[in-house]
C-alpha cells in the first residue's frame, strides 16, 4: 500500500479523531476532579473496590456465553430438526424478554428451581437406597449459591443467545464450497466444522464478539439489582447514603467510559488488521 506524501491541512482536520480527544478530555477533567475534590475522591475510593468484581463477572460470564453461543450456534445451522428447534427456542425466548427481567428470573426462579430439583433427586436416590449418591445431592441448598454466581449464570444465559447468533452468522458467512471440499475429502461434519469452517468463521466474527464483550461489560451493571457489589451497586450505595448524586454517578459513568473506550479501540484495531489481511 502506498501512502500519499503529504496530506492537505483540510484533510487532516477532517480525518482527525476529534471524538476521541473529546472523550479523553472528559476523562481527564473527571480524573482531576477525583484527585482534587474530597467528595469525588471519596466516591471513587469506595467504588474502585467494585471494579475487579465488574471485570471478573464480565470475563467469566463472557467465557461461558461463548461456550453456550458455540453450541447453540452449531445447533442453529445444523440440519437436525430437534437441535435446530431447541436452539431457536432458546434464542427467541432470551431475545423476547428484557434483560433485567431475565436476570431476576434466572437468579430467583430458574436457579432456585434447579437447586430444588437436585435435592429432590437426591431424596429419591436415598429412597431407593443409594445413600452415597443421594446424600450429597439432597443436602444442596439455595443458600449455598451466591448472588454473584447467579448473576454470572444470568448474564451467560442472556449473552449466550447473542453470541449464538454471531456464531450462526459467522458460520453462514463461509462459502458452502469450503464444507463441500472438506466433506469430499472424507472429513466428517464435525471434523470439517472444527478444521475448516470454524477457524475461518471465528476470524470473521472477532469484531462482533469484541463488541459483544463491550456490551456485556456495560450490561453487567444490571447485576447490581441482585445486590452484587459491583461498581454500580457501590455507587448506588454511596449516593443513597451521602446524597452526593453528582459525584457518585459522574465517577461511575467515567469509570465505565474508561473501560469501554479502551476496549473499543482494541476492537477497532482488530477490525483493521483483519481487513488489511484480507486485502493482501
Amino acid at each position: 500500500m502506498e501512502k500519499p506524501e503529504q496530506r492537505s491541512f483540510k484533510e487532516r482536520i477532517i480525518k482527525f479523531p476529534w471524538w476521541l480527544v473529546s472523550i479523553g478530555l472528559v476523562i481527564i477533567v473527571t480524573l482531576l476532579l477525583i484527585i482534587n475534590t474530597p467528595s469525588f475522591n471519596e466516591a471513587f475510593v469506595i467504588m474502585s473496590a467494585g471494579i475487579s468484581t465488574t471485570i471478573t463477572i464480565t470475563i467469566i460470564a463472557y467465557s461461558i456465553s461463548l461456550l453456550i453461543g458455540l453450541i447453540v450456534g452449531l445447533g442453529r445451522v445444523s440440519s437436525g430438526v430437534i437441535a435446530k428447534n431447541m436452539a431457536t427456542f432458546y434464542i427467541e425466548i432470551v431475545r423476547g424478554i428484557p434483560m433485567l427481567v431475565l436476570i431476576f428470573f434466572t437468579a430467583l426462579v430458574i436457579i432456585p428451581g434447579a437447586i430444588k430439583l437436585i435435592s429432590l433427586v437426591g431424596d429419591k436416590f436415598i429412597g431407593i437406597g443409594w445413600a452415597s449418591v443421594g446424600e450429597p445431592l439432597a443436602g444442596v441448598n439455595i443458600r449455598m449459591v451466591s448472588m454473584s454466581f447467579r448473576a454470572v449464570i444470568a448474564l451467560s444465559i442472556t449473552y449466550g443467545a447473542f453470541s449464538a447468533e454471531i456464531f450462526r452468522a459467522g458460520i453462514q458467512s463461509i462459502h458452502p464450497g469450503q464444507m463441500q471440499a472438506a466433506r469430499s475429502q472424507g472429513m466428517s461434519y464435525g471434523q470439517a466444522m472444527k478444521n475448516v469452517i470454524l477457524p475461518q468463521a471465528i476470524r470473521n466474527m472477532l469484531p462482533a464478539l469484541g463488541n459483544d464483550f463491550i456490551s456485556m461489560l456495560k450490561d453487567s451493571s444490571l447485576v447490581s439489582v441482585l445486590a452484587v457489589r459491583d461498581v454500580t451497586h457501590l455507587a448506588r450505595l454511596y449516593a443513597g447514603g451521602s446524597f452526593r448524586f453528582t459525584e457518585a454517578y459522574s465517577t461511575l459513568a467515567v469509570l465505565y467510559l474508561c473501560m469501554t473506550v479502551l476496549l473499543s479501540l482494541v476492537v477497532k484495531y482488530i477490525e483493521r488488521r483483519i481487513s488489511t489481511n484480507d486485502k493482501s
Binding site: 469450503q178 471440499a181 475429502q185
Partner: peptide, 20 residues
C-alpha cells in the same frame, strides 16, 4: 461414506481451497 469419499478425489469449479 466418509471412507469412500476419502477414496474419491474431487476438483471443483471454484477450487474451494481452504482459505485460512
Amino acid at each position: 461414506l466418509n471412507c469412500h469419499r476419502a477414496e474419491i478425489g474431487m476438483v471443483f469449479q471454484d477450487f474451494n481451497l481452504y482459505a485460512h
